[in-house]
Design a protein around this nucleic acid. Structure first.
Length: 197
DNA sequence: CGGCTGATCGTG
DNA sequence: ACGATCAGCCGA
């Protein structure tokens, strides 16, 4: 049996997927080497009714096309002209929702990840959405990739009990007005690999 | 066509 | 607190 999560894991309620992704292991094969980390922090983006989401109001462009596919693939986009963010697309086809992976606790390939970022200590390696994509060399080339592909996948990790999940508001979405207050950010309690607010 | 903006981060 | 930096979105 494989440890890799199957599409059915993603093709359901986005908030449930967000919570369930905590503790799972994100794996990237880069130049033949395995880079990985435990997912410690995520945010849910609730699609066309979510003012913070790129697809709000049903906007559908070349950039957001991956969001409209069936759950189980990546949605990678460039933000602020210099960083990439990695999302796991959820729900069924034509329901454009996703979970943003915000932080990891590094596990494998730490030296390579440190080289891909510049002189960073371990606590600064993958504790932010732009940092972890840099550490794992995840770019626009990985947009739309299956999360069960050879080069990028998510597999079973550690168990996180419900009482160890903190729920709060999302970061950097003030432009979303009242929807900025929605409690859609989840992270592992007492874990030190979390991005700062 | 041109102007504006952002699911961030590092520096100060 | 602020600037970097540019693809992509939107209005004209």
């Amino acid at each position: 049996m494989s440890l890799v999560l199957s599409p059915s894991f993603y093709q359901r309620n986005t908030k449930a997927v967000a919570r369930a992704l905590l503790g799972k292991k994100l794996v990237r094969i880069y130049k033949g080497e395995r880079l990985s980390g435990i997912i410690t922090e995520v945010e849910a983006y609730m699609g066309i009714k979510d003012k913070a989401a790129h697809v709000y109001g049903g906007r559908r462009t070349l950039r957001t096309e991956a969001m409209y596919a069936a759950g189980g693939i990546s949605y990678v986009y460039l933000i602020y002209g210099m960083y990439y963010c990695l999302n796991a697309v959820t729900e069924k086809k034509e329901v454009p929702q996703a979970v943003l992976v915000r932080s990891l606790e590094p596990l494998e390939g730490i030296k390579t990840m440190q080289a891909l970022r510049k002189n960073s200590n371990i606590k600064n390696l993958t504790t932010g959405p732009g940092k972890l994509t840099q550490a794992m060399h995840i770019t626009k080339s990985e947009n739309g990739l299956s999360l069960g592909s050879d080069a990028l996948f998510i597999e079973e990790g550690i168990t996180v009990s419900k009482s160890n999940i903190i729920k709060t508001t999302r970061i950097g979405v003030d432009y979303a007005g009242d929807h900025a207050a929605w409690p859609l950010r989840f992270y592992i309690k007492d874990n030190s690999f979390i991005s700062k607010k």
